[in-house]
Nucleic acid binder design. Structure first.
Lengths: 226, 226
DNA sequence: GCCGCTCTTGATACAGTGTATCGACAGATA
DNA sequence: TATCTGTCGATACACTGTATCAAGAGCGGC
């Protein structure tokens, strides 16, 4: 036996076999911790103590990995409730909560067609909860709520990042962009906008999300009733 | 005079001076033609017959260039109309049309806080058209329409790309994903979803967009009336 | 008209990306 | 034991955004 032979590291007895799931979990962990930019094939492979090319035995391309990540978080989106209204609201709120837990979801959501098992399961839960509603209304209603959630989540996360990037809280944010906005508004080119921003209510993220969702659900309800 | 001196190319008498606007226009042209991936600083610079580093005299970072591109297309989004409903509808439809002209907008929209002059001008047009509506309603109403448009446009463009990538028309698309979906639905794990997909209406993109928008506007109208 | 200074400009370089290629090695088969 | 097969990972390639810095152009002072 060669004396310089390296002994097996005893604290990792048998490396768990690689799998799509393990790869996706590692990618999600990286993205949760440091954002989507931290998800490179090299880093994911590194987190699994494996060469980068190894991953190509399990995924065809990086895009596919991103799709799998999105489908993975859809496991956390399982709408419930009695009646179409509660179900649609649950769809919206659970999606939003998932985006809070995984901010990178805002970068990906709505950007690729999703047909993975977890995404389909979410769709099934919604469809199953819409019983009694006319099919001609169910399809556009679900599509509309989905569209609203995608956009609302994107805007909310974007804003949250901007605030965080410029100091921490809202006061800091205003201090950063305040001068530019003040100057711009001072030109008098945007009087109506200035009035709305100045005199309008400053709703927090929760209230804004719910207000828009209520508009939408009210409109859908009117169609179902009438 | 040296004989091997290269004479001035006569067909480009004086190269137009570089400017932010010219850079942004070139970037938009590239993105329109070949998608966002075709927008690299080297390619943009190349389109302007200039070294890549030259751009940094006009933009601080690539992110800034993307922001400027988004603001530039906001010049095409100028909502008009009589009354809040027409104005909000116009905001939605002009945004959607801009995204049709510049599909890459779907990748960027909602992904960064937008405070550029054209974006503010769009906001001003909307705010100005909401006269008479209670300020406490104006803010969440605009936010809701914006969120809906972002999500709807994203989904629509995404779908359009998927169809195009897999052949050209809808028949091809179904031929590509049909087998997988058929198999998946055949497992019986998604009965409600299968029923909706099978028996529900197949609306085209225009109708879907308008249906969702109508839901939202109806809901907002109910709040304004009541 | 010529020197020296400042600012602009572009070549080079660096660290990182996704992915193709292909030699080496392990395990199975004869 | 010898050969075949298929997996694995080192290396390489083209490309990205951006920092650095030497060369050059324009210009004021003598």
């Amino acid at each position: 036996m060669l004396v310089w032979e390296r002994p097996e590291p005893p604290d990792r007895p048998t490396p768990a076999p690689l799998s799509r799931e393990r790869i996706v979990r590692a990618a999600v962990r990286l993205a949760d911790a440091d954002g989507l930019d931290a998800v490179s094939l090299r880093k994911v492979a590194g987190a699994l103590d494996v060469g980068p090319m190894r991953l190509y035995g399990y995924i065809a391309t990086k895009e596919e990995l991103l799709d799998l990540m999105v489908d993975a978080v859809h496991a956390e989106i399982r709408p419930t409730g009695d009646g179409w209204r509660e179900v649609l609201r649950s769809l919206a709120e659970t999606t939003r909560r998932a985006a809070h837990r995984h901010e990178w979801l805002a970068d990906l959501i709505g950007g690729r067609p999703q047909l993975g098992p977890n995404t389909l399961a979410s769709g099934e839960a919604v469809a199953a909860g819409m019983g009694g509603v006319d099919l001609g209304t169910v399809v556009p209603a679900i599509a509309a709520v989905n569209a609203y959630v995608i956009g609302a989540v994107r805007r909310e996360i974007t804003e949250r990042r901007a605030e965080r990037a410029s100091g921490m809280d809202q006061r800091q944010w205003q201090a950063t962009f305040g001068p530019y906005l003040r100057r711009t508004f001072a030109t008098g080119r945007f009087p109506a906008l200035a009035a709305v921003v100045h005199d309008g209510p400053h709703l927090d993220a929760d209230r804004t999300f719910r207000a828009g969702l209520d508009f939408l659900l009210d409109g859908i309800g009117a169609r179902i009733a009438g």
